[in-house]
Design a binder for these strands. Structure first.
Lengths: 260, 260
DNA sequence: CAGTGGTCTAGACCACATG
DNA sequence: ATGTGGTCTAGACCACTGG
């Protein structure tokens, strides 16, 4: 079990009525009811009435609270999930996500160099390290034959215990025969580079696009399935312009700002 | 009425059954029914059975076709709209969007320099040109006082008549007293620069983030309300490092790839 | 006017997580 | 065993578009 999942704050219905600002009456003239409910819940999140990690009442309770059907409430909740404000956990409940507003990422330096200034507690967790055949995109980026072996490293970055960045990297196995040994000493890719005689390297290419979270992305980033993501593909090269790392990074769409 | 909205192709139910690959039977064991419907419709779009600009049957017809309720079909259609494959027009119907797969945008050059190679027909349409007070973000970017007057220019970019890029620019009015006169000659911002003695300029900053389409964005890009967007903010400066243009550009999330 | 998508209801059953 | 979110139904009424 995760650190970030401890200390649930449970909100009961009576509290929520107060927190949502009193009378739960709506007229559907201007804005549809489900959007008004969306507004109200989002407002409660933004003004702190629904703090991060707090648990919402059950959907039926919320529906009764607003005097609407469960379906209507679910539309509001669904939009809030897509925008990264809430995360639903089947069989458990719906929780307020820690929305780490925006992360400045200086693309020309190493990543997250500018990040420590604004956020105290940055952690990197290794999710998996395995040997496999290179992906199609990886083969092209690393300029190695299809079928080549690579080391695939998946890591997640937490800021104040909230997941904000998921990265999957591929390294040519030939270039890094002792990857695992050196990596696990300090969980540092730079150390692996150094141990294999690569003192300097640089980013050769960066591509940015969008996509939607698949099951695994969603799980790692504590998002709901199909949430939109900002996706960045990058390639690192050594001083001889030989590709040494292919990286695919993903952020929740609304939680990052890339600065160039 | 738009060019791109002419030549509707109407698909009737019988056709669709054939196009969707025969038997509309589903079992909900592995993948939920609405996702299977999503798969089938997306498959038909991708293999050309549902070409761009074609009109789907009414939601009730599609529901009957798959032997499910209208609500279930709407979930599949909703996801397809969010991903930019379909656009619903109230009171009219649901249409297949032209998905211009991915646009390479070289950020260090002028935009879309690399684009003509892959797409023949690029147009830029001016949606509005008006005088107003600078926005908050614009004031900061242009380094001018809040309340300053700017020229706000909104343009949309079409590739093969499909909307792919929406840009809103702000220019300091003091710097460009004759903006309108020069702009309307060839609808070229570069010409306006030249006419005001700016021969060279460069991009000073680029910020990339995500957002969701508001009503106007959605209308211009022919997307459904609340579709996720890739958003890019940039500032152009003259050779003295004085900001001359603040630009906010938006793409449908899945229709662009920014290459740096 | 008829046809369309947008909204909403009041149920129902399921899969999952937790105690 | 209980409570949760996930899925699905069969209706209903509305607002909008177009002929």
């Amino acid at each position: 079990m995760d650190n970030s999942e401890r200390s649930e704050i449970k909100i009961n219905t009576v509290d929520l009525i107060a927190k949502l600002g009193g009378a739960p009456y709506l007229n559907k003239s201007e804005r549809s009811i489900w959007l008004q409910i969306y507004d109200r819940i989002l407002g409660s999140i933004n003004d702190g009435a629904l703090p991060p990690h707090s648990k919402l009442p059950g959907e039926l309770d919320v529906a009764n609270l607003f005097h609407v059907s469960r379906v209507t409430v679910r539309r509001a909740l669904s939009k809030l999930q897509q925008e990264g404000y809430l995360q639903a956990r089947k069989g458990v409940g719906i929780f307020v996500r820690q929305q780490e507003l925006r992360y400045a990422v200086q693309s020309k330096m190493h990543f997250f160099d500018g990040l420590g200034e604004t956020h105290d507690e940055i952690q990197t967790k290794t999710l998996s390290l395995r040997y496999k055949s290179v992906s199609l995109a990886g083969a092209e980026a690393l300029n190695i034959p299809i079928g080549s072996k690579v080391i695939e490293l998946t890591r997640i970055r937490l800021a104040n215990s909230a997941a904000i960045y998921l990265a999957t990297k591929e390294f040519p196995e030939k270039r890094f025969p002792d990857f695992e040994k050196h990596y696990y000493q300090k969980h540092s890719v730079t150390d692996v580079y150094n141990a294999h005689g690569i003192g300097e390297y640089h980013r050769a290419q960066t591509r940015i696009s969008g996509s939607f979270a698949n099951q695994l992305d969603a799980e790692a980033l504590k998002l709901t399935h199909e949430t939109p993501l900002l996706r960045m593909m990058s390639v690192n090269c050594d001083t001889d312009e030989v590709p040494i790392e292919y990286n695919v990074g993903r952020w929740p769409l609304t939680s990052v700002e890339l600065i160039f």
